[in-house]
């Protein structure tokens, strides 16, 4: 007769390590995020440094060397991306165009976000007739095509760059206003807002500290999406000739100039197109990632 005493094996470090699972991956694969971030940073960097690194003045013409191909298609090192119909350096013009377009897009998004968020916050917080008036304005603007508004405004106010920035900024503030107002109204019934009221917070304080931060997540997502759209809108306006005026260049005006040479020298159109696509895709990807990381529920 024996008593079987089993001593349980102590768990050694090795087994412990195996038990620890790797934290699950969330969101998009990081590769897309890293590439997008690098593209956007590179674009911003190039845009900021444009005056220092352009090999030629953007208005410097040379009719003798017009429509030269890019260097990989048999061109010279002097014009790495070739020349346009007036012999101007495409590389230099592309850098400046990116600079202009990015500036307008950032300024436009900023104006839209600030105006829209404030409008939505005021509208949703006040309620009543103030809400109805603001909502009516917002709905009215949403019903009119942006390009039409922009064309009219340019026809009336001229093509000053500031006018363009304002038009683009106010072209989509209504989307922020709507989404923020919706959030504000939805939040009014939430119990943490009631709790704030119960703890003696003033309406202003509740709006700024409890309501506003809870609307950021959709605003950021919308901003990144509309950043892409604003790049396209600016390009369309400039393409139509009512946007950025010579001697300034934007990606849209480059495209506009290139449209007569689509068959003979397609690179003139391809380069600005590639830049537009890169910026818009990168912005949308980053917006998606921001949404995932800004949502406190998905934070670890």
């Amino acid at each position: 007769m024996s008593i079987d005493i089993r001593v349980s094996e102590p768990i050694v470090g090795e087994t412990e390590d195996k038990l620890v699972l790797a934290p699950p991956r969330r969101g998009r694969p990081p590769a897309a995020r890293i590439i997008s971030l690098s593209i956007l940073f590179l674009m911003i960097l190039l845009a900021l440094a444009a005056p220092a690194i352009t090999p030629h003045d953007i208005s410097e013409q040379s009719l003798l060397s017009r429509l030269q191909p890019p260097v990989f298609a048999g061109g010279t090192d002097d014009h790495p991306l070739g020349t346009d119909h007036l012999g101007r350096d495409v590389f230099s013009r592309l850098l400046f165009a990116t600079r202009t377009t990015l500036f307008i897009a950032f300024a436009g998004v900023f104006i839209g976000v600030v105006a829209g968020t404030l409008g939505g916050l005021i509208s949703g917080t006040l309620g009543g007739w103030a809400d109805q008036c603001l909502s009516a304005v917002v709905d009215a603007q949403a019903a009119v095509p942006t390009t039409l508004v922009a064309l009219t405004a340019v026809a009336l106010a001229g093509t000053h760059p500031l006018v363009l920035v304002l038009i683009i900024g106010f072209s989509d503030y209504y989307r922020y206003a709507r989404i923020v107002r919706g959030q504000v109204v939805a939040l009014q019934g939430r119990s943490f807002i009631e709790a704030a009221r119960c703890s003696g917070a003033s309406p202003w304080r509740i709006a700024m500290r409890h309501v506003l931060p809870n609307t950021f997540s959709p605003v950021v997502v919308l901003a990144s999406l509309s950043f892409a759209e604003i790049v396209v809108l600016e390009s369309s306006l400039s393409f139509l000739g009512v946007g950025v005026q010579p001697p300034n260049v934007s990606l849209g005006s480059l495209l506009g100039e290139a449209r007569n040479y689509l068959i003979s020298t397609p690179w003139l159109a391809i380069f600005p197109c590639v830049v537009i696509v890169m910026i818009t895709v990168a912005a949308a990807t980053i917006g998606d990632w921001l949404r995932a990381s800004l949502d406190p529920r998905s934070r670890t």
Binding site: C198, S199, N214
Partner: peptide, 21 residues
């Protein structure tokens, strides 16, 4: 007075706390 002399707590603590603070 509210929050200072009279305070209130709620049924759903998850909903009564501000998720972003």
């Amino acid at each position: 007075i509210l929050g200072n002399e009279i305070a209130m707590i709620f049924q759903e603590p998850a909903a009564a706390l501000n998720p972003v603070c």
